[in-house]
Design a protein around this nucleic acid. Structure first.
Lengths: 105, 105
DNA sequence: TTGACATGCAACCATTTGGTTGCATATCAT
DNA sequence: ATGATATGCAACCAAATGGTTGCATGTCAA
């Protein structure tokens, strides 16, 4: 999960994921159009995303197709974020209860 | 939101957040006990968390108390992860529909 | 008031990161 | 076959990152 967190830390990589979310299965050169850097730099970013299992690769002839894998993001949500979300809602609930006690008390 | 993503990329910082999740309002020296590094290094990590608005600090005398702020994590969930979660559930739903068509067809 | 405690600040260091350039290789289309 | 297209690989570079050490400052307690 650490690799996924690290991969998500860079805005260029998040943009790549967003791009795949809009249109899955894009080639490297297609993905390059959205980022202002060399193809080789984009390759490195996609390599990190692939290492973090966030994108899967399929070769079609000389083209490399990139597919989004939502599982690691789900795991981050399930095993990490959800805990804080519950905490947050609990805090809201506690606040609400406190306000009601002020009103009725 | 970029600062929050970057802050979450480091496992020591995530551990600090987990620690505050368990027990909010801890001092710097208390938080130091959970990490195998110098106090100054922990200070830097907490500084990044603070800059990302993930923790808020309150001074009590010479002690610095650290409180968890769940809002940025919620924003990451709401404005980023939720989109992929829906995508994932849609994929599941599509799969289910496909299977039913195979059964009934 | 003095010593211990909690923290801050700054310089320094090695490694990682995010990018580049240059060249090589494989596939497609004419 | 040949040229254009799609990608890979490696060396290099500057800046950011994650840690250290050393010392200064402010607050509590005896």
């Amino acid at each position: 999960m650490d690799a996924a967190f690290k991969a998500l830390a860079d805005s260029s990589r998040r943009r790549l994921l967003d791009q795949l979310h809009k249109s899955d299965g894009q080639t490297l050169t297609e993905l390059c159009e959205y980022l202002d850097m060399t193809r080789q730099a984009v390759t490195k970013h996609l390599g990190l995303l692939e290492a973090a299992n966030l994108v899967a690769i399929v070769w079609r002839g000389r083209e490399k197709l990139h597919y989004l894998n939502p599982v690691p993001i789900h795991e981050i949500y399930e095993r990490w974020i959800d805990k804080y979300e519950r905490h947050r809602l609990q805090a809201l609930s506690d606040l609400k209860k406190g306000l009601e006690e002020i009103k009725t008390g």
